[in-house]
Simulated scan of single mutants.
Amino acid sequence: MKNSLLIIFLLLSFTARSNEEELKVVTEDWPPFILKGQEVSGIVTSNIREILAYTDIKYSIDVYPWARSFHLATTNPNILIYSIYRTKQRESKFHWFCPLYKSTPIHVYKLASNEINIDSLEALKTSVVGIMRGDNSHSYFLQQGFQEGVNLDISSNEETNLKKLIKGRIDVVIQSKESLNYRLGLLGAADLNLMSGLEISKGESAEHCMALSLGTKPETINKIKKGFEQWQKTQ
């Protein structure tokens, strides 16, 4: 009798675990913070793995173009997205966990040989800005009156923007210093002479966050909250 009850208990436990919904973690290729490979890695990805290790949640990490990751996270439950900047426009779309990593300022960069002024928004409106579709800078420039096809050139990734900059097809790119240097190295252009200008994101507005999609079960939200709080104590 005892053995039968034990078997039934184990079967029920296995069924419950099998029915648990796996957390889908989505992100973009943003070196050196997030590196796409056979296994997603990078400085910030390591923090994500540490946080989720404090929970019993099954998860997978997938790398997509930013616009797709953001769409998935805003249209489906049980999606965790990182690294994401916390803005007023995004505030109500997620359950937020910040900071995941320290502030990473974003600047405007141009070729040193280009004489355009990149120190103000008004000056930039006379140039062509290379922007990644759907990211925070894309929204920011649209709000400031920039227009796609006029002074905004849209790409699906930052490597494409850098190639366009090198070839003179655009005037500026929007990057963090760390990511810019990493990508230039991959392109064999580490010695390229660039100049920085206007700072787009800084301070708390440039902190890396992770965000959980709305509609996610309260149990999952609480587990991630507790895992995040435990992780913060070790930092």
Rank of each mutant, 00 (worst) to 15 (best):
I61H: 04
V128C: 01
Q143P: 03
Y101Q: 08
F141E: 03
T55G: 02
G134W: 01
S176D: 13
P105D: 14
I118N: 02
F97E: 10
L124W: 01
Q143S: 15
L184I: 05
I174G: 00
I166F: 11
L124N: 04
N181A: 14
Q143E: 15
Y140W: 11
E158L: 13
S179M: 11
T74L: 05
T126H: 13
K163A: 01
G168C: 11
W66D: 00
Q175H: 14
L100W: 05
H95A: 10
I131N: 01
D171Y: 05
I106Q: 02
I174E: 00
D62C: 06
C98Q: 09
E159T: 14
Y140H: 12
K163S: 04
D135Q: 09
L162E: 03
L186F: 07
N151A: 02
V150E: 14
F141R: 00
E122W: 03
H95F: 14
I170L: 09
L194N: 01
A73I: 06
E122A: 13
Y101P: 04
R68H: 04
Y140S: 10
Y182A: 09
S179F: 04
E199H: 05
K58R: 13
V173Y: 01
S113G: 11
A73G: 07
F94I: 04
K164W: 06
Q89K: 13
E91D: 15
E199R: 14
P99C: 10
A112E: 15
G188Q: 03
L187M: 08
S83M: 03
H138N: 12
H95G: 06
I131H: 00
Y85C: 02
K164P: 08
L184C: 06
I57R: 04
I166W: 09
R133C: 01
D135K: 02
R86N: 14
V128N: 02
I61P: 04
S92F: 11
I200S: 13
S156W: 06
G185Q: 10
